[in-house]
Simulated scan of single mutants.
Amino acid sequence: MLILVCYDVNTETSAGKTRLRKIAKECVNYGSRVQNSVFECILDNTQYLVLKNILSEIIDEKIDSLRFYNLGNSHRGKVEQIGRKQGIQVEEALIF
């Protein structure tokens, strides 16, 4: 299923900057960055729960925001791209 992970981390302190780096690093392990604080991740249910748990432990719920949008397995018609960066089709073979 396609999960869109979006986050907003308060970076006014060094702790906030550290949280931001940790969240981005974890998201890179699970998907592709499509905007500064937005990742598209193709995950099964177990991977989704693991990622959600990891990120939930990193953020400060009082000042940060973390959102997960489940676009499901039939996501091809649900995402429209306009602009410079085209996402990769992670379900398909990559040929270099």
Rank of each mutant, 00 (worst) to 15 (best):
E80Q: 09
N45W: 10
G77R: 08
I95R: 04
K62I: 01
Q89T: 13
E61Y: 07
K25P: 13
A24T: 04
L51N: 02
K62Q: 08
C27G: 00
Q81G: 03
D64K: 05
G77S: 08
L2I: 15
N73P: 00
N45I: 14
V50T: 09
C27L: 12
A24N: 04
A24V: 05
Q81A: 10
V50A: 10
V38H: 03
V38D: 00
Y7A: 10
S74L: 12
Y30C: 02
Q47T: 09
I63E: 09
T13E: 05
T13D: 07
C27K: 02
M1E: 03
L49T: 10
K85A: 15
G77V: 05
E91M: 08
I54K: 12
I58N: 01
A15W: 03
L66Y: 06
I88F: 14
Q89F: 15
S56A: 13
A93L: 15
L55I: 07
R76C: 06
C41Y: 00
C41L: 05
R76W: 11
G87N: 13
L71R: 00
D64Q: 06
F96S: 06
G16F: 07
K25G: 14
I3H: 01
Q35W: 07
T11N: 09
K22G: 10
F39P: 04
L4G: 03
I59F: 00
D8R: 04
L55D: 01
L43I: 03
I54Q: 07
S74W: 01
Q81M: 13
C41H: 01
R67L: 14
Q86H: 13
I58M: 03
N70G: 04
L71T: 01
D44A: 08
K62Y: 04
S37F: 04
M1L: 06
K17H: 07
I23G: 04
L43F: 09
V34M: 04
R21E: 11
L71H: 02
I63H: 11
I59A: 00
R19G: 02
D64P: 05
N70E: 12
L43S: 04
I3V: 15
K78I: 03
Y30P: 00
A24M: 04
L4Y: 06
I82R: 06
I58P: 02
G83F: 10
N10A: 13
Q89E: 15
S32P: 00
F39Y: 14
K22C: 13
A24I: 05
Y7E: 04
L55A: 05
C41M: 03
G77Y: 01
E40N: 02
K78N: 07
S74Y: 03
L2A: 05
V38C: 02
G16V: 01
T18V: 14
I42C: 08
E92N: 14
